[in-house]
Design a protein around this nucleic acid. Structure first.
Length: 701
DNA sequence: AGCCCTTTGAAGATC
DNA sequence: GATCTTCAAAGGGCT
């Protein structure tokens, strides 16, 4: 039950805060719920009966005794009936309380149980004459249940046979049906979980055993989780957004919805929290023994299986290299490299897809640790990047002399890092700032100062790795992202600077990259204290002040005016930082299109990127030493030069890039979805002019 | 065909 | 207790 006191007590500015979210959570003890319910009624819901309260006070047994719902229905306990049929809660805004839409749908409730079915919003007394549910083609039982089950297989096990109807036990019509009042054997399990419990209690009972077997035999119905507030909101608003927008991709739509969710007023959100709470409550009532745990692994069963298989294959003895596989006496069957003491091709092929890093480059064909000398042999192969696996990641720290080129630029490495991210903190490096980079690939460019540049890159590796960190509109179609600290939120720039002591050695850099890479994603500084005296500090300001940092409000570079500071500071994935961001000029669709250009001039692009990287590095160094000033002439001029260099060197590449960008811009501009708020994050992305700044992008922002 | 992406929130799992 | 992980909806994109 919502704690309204806190709801009104908190500042209304931060709708996104977790605290506020919790405000609307009913979770918590039912004790608390009872205690606070009266206040709630007074404050918000005085006009409506707090049926939950009555239910809890007079009907608290519903869950503990696990008694079949039928019994409850049979008794016509008002509390129960109303508790189920009419939401015990009303909305603060006066919206008639009804069963949550989804649950109502789920159980086949007529539309008047839906919150927005105004004419019938107030449910008639359960005993009143009500059109048979069969008459309602849409909301009746005939409609597809929200929780899909095989024909007539309403997830409520007890319903089983006839109780596909029970789906309708919530419906007034059924409720009034005489057949429904037929006492249902109380011994029948309410659901599988409850069945398990009951069976446990009566394990000695043969009958119970039988039913247990039957339960086991029967395919366990999948009871889905109740929808949370946001899910309910999405469900309700998706169609609207789709109608408003030309977007069809759910990922993009979800971004919009996510943003709008945060823009919702407190009251509006509370409505959905209420709905969600009701959903959960109803869900609890419907499936008393159900736990979210029951669904764990449901989605990822296949993944797990896959994983297990993979683990078994790669980690088990099945994956042996030639020597271990065939033995010394059958060297004729060894692959050539093995015979030459090089990488085991068979082994690698078997690993197929796991990336070169897993080819066991640190191990010999016997799987034993290699000495450095041995490793050198393998280096000759140049088959494997040094990144991508945990082992390799660790290696970065261990190998002092390993060049960053080996340890960093590999997309495989980045990909591996990206796999560490939390979905909620996923931030792609693809930035709206990166509109024009030719980069088909990227590079983590180690600046000699406090900066690390992420710019264009070695392409040879990228080509083979569809998933990679994308900085400048990489052709990577996958969402390449880097984990960031949860509280970080800003748009990444192609050139990411890090606060903190400059790693003087390659080891430091490697460690920094290895250990702090997650901070790079959004151009945010890791929680490293920067030297306060450093001139470069303003340039490499840590996250909290990122919005005030000049680097995030760089002067426009050519036609690419950057105004990152105006971007919404969402607590999660910043809009625009994501390739799938609908505001991102390099949204997924565009990235997808970009793929068409990916291989066109890859070499030229790569070459250009190297130049860019160096140039950007110089700029960074300069700024680090001399400090950064908005409209920094050096920066601008260098960028300008950079741009021209790029123009001249990658003219061909640019042509295709521009063509693509034109499409991209068109795509973005044609997106009617951008409300004012939505467009906040849109970086001005004018079609690139031939002469100015389309490449500026890389714009070291 | 099946997974991915993307969002927020709830809840279980893990440390 | 804090953090991580999974799942819930949706549907186009991708493999």
């Amino acid at each position: 039950m919502p704690h309204t006191h806190s709801r009104h007590g908190s500042s209304g500015d931060d709708l996104c805060s977790t605290d506020e979210v919790k405000i609307f959570k009913d979770e918590g003890d039912r004790e608390d719920e009872k205690i606070s319910s009266e206040n709630l009624l007074v404050e918000e819901k005085s006009s409506l009966i707090d049926l939950t309260e009555s239910e809890e006070k007079g009907h608290k047994i519903s869950r503990p005794d696990h008694s079949p719902v039928f019994n409850k229905l049979d008794t016509h306990a008002p509390s129960f009936n109303m508790g189920y049929l009419v939401s015990p809660y009303s909305y603060a805004n006066g919206t008639p309380s009804g069963l949550p839409v989804t649950m109502a749908n789920k159980i086949g409730l007529p539309s008047f149980f839906c919150h927005n079915a105004d004419p019938l919003s107030t449910p008639p007394p359960a005993h009143c004459g009500i059109p048979p549910y069969q008459l309602d083609p849409k909301m009746g039982l005939t409609r597809p249940a929200l929780y899909p089950f095989a024909g007539g297989q309403y997830p409520y096990p007890m319903l089983s046979s006839d109780m596909s109807q029970v789906a309708s036990w919530h419906t007034p019509s059924v409720y009034s049906a005489s057949s429904f009042r037929t006492p249902y054997p109380s011994s029948l399990p309410i659901n599988t979980t409850l069945a398990r419990n009951l069976e446990a209690k009566h394990s000695s009972n043969a009958q119970s055993n039988e039913s247990k077997e039957a339960t086991n035999d029967k395919k366990k119905p999948h009871i889905k989780k109740p929808l949370n507030a946001f899910m309910l909101y999405m469900k309700e608003m998706r169609a609207k957004v789709v109608a408003e927008c030309t977007l069809k991709e759910s990922a993009a739509i979800n971004q919009i919805l996510g943003r709008r969710w945060h823009e919702l007023s407190r009251e509006e959100q509370s409505k959905y929290y209420e709905k969600a709470r009701q959903e959960r409550q109803l869900h609890m009532e419907l499936y008393p023994g159900w736990s979210a745990r029951d669904n764990y692994g449901y989605v990822s069963k296949k993944k797990k299986r896959k994983k297990d298989r993979s683990t078994t294959d790669s980690g088990g003895n099945n994956m042996k290299k030639c020597r271990a596989r065939f033995g010394l006496d059958q060297q004729s069957q060894w692959c050539k490299p093995c015979r030459r003491k090089k990488k085991c091709i068979r082994y690698m092929e078997a690993l197929n897809g796991n990336g070169p890093a897993e080819d066991g480059s640190c191990f010999d064909e016997h799987g034993s640790q290699l000495s450095d000398d041995d490793e050198d042999d393998y280096d000759d192969d140049k088959l494997g990047g040094s990144c991508g696996s945990a082992d390799e990641t660790n290696k970065i720290e261990d190998e002092d002399s390993e060049s960053l080129n080996q340890s960093m630029p590999s997309p495989g490495c980045l990909s591996g890092l990206s796999s560490l991210q939390s979905p909620s903190t996923t931030m792609s490096l693809a930035s709206p700032l990166n509109i024009n980079a030719n980069s088909a690939t990227n590079v983590i460019f180690p600046a000699s100062s406090n900066a690390v540049l992420i710019v264009g890159a070695d392409q040879s590796t990228v080509q083979q790795r569809p998933t990679l960190v994308s900085t400048s509109g990489s052709s990577s179609g996958s969402t390449s992202s880097i984990s960031t600290t949860p509280n970080t939120s800003s748009t990444v720039s192609p050139v990411t600077c890090m606060t903190g002591p400059c790693p003087g050695s390659s080891q430091e850099r490697a460690m920094m990259l290895g250990n702090r890479f997650s901070h790079l994603g959004m151009g945010l500084s890791p929680p490293v204290v920067s030297t306060s005296t450093s001139k470069s500090e303003p340039f490499f300001k840590p996250h909290p002040t990122v919005s005030n940092n000049p680097i995030f409000s760089l002067p426009s570079i050519g036609n690419c005016s950057l105004n990152i500071s105006s971007m919404p500071n969402t607590s999660r994935n910043p809009i625009g930082a994501n390739p799938r961001d609908i505001n991102n000029p390099l949204s997924i669709n565009q990235l997808t299109k970009r793929r068409d250009y990916k291989n066109v001039d890859l070499i030229e692009a790569s070459e250009s990127k190297t130049i860019v990287a160096h140039a950007a590095s110089s700029i960074i160094q300069h700024v680090a030493v001399n400090g950064y000033h908005a409209n920094h002439s050096l920066l601008n001029s260098n960028l300008s030069q950079l741009h021209h260099q790029l123009n001249s060197r990658t003219e061909k590449a640019n042509r295709s890039e521009k063509a693509m960008l034109s499409v991209s811009n068109h795509s973005v501009n044609s997106n009617e979805c951008h409300k004012e708020s939505d467009s906040q994050a849109i970086v001005s992305s004018n079609p690139p002019n031939a002469g100015s700044s389309d490449n500026g992008v890389i714009s070291v922002s």
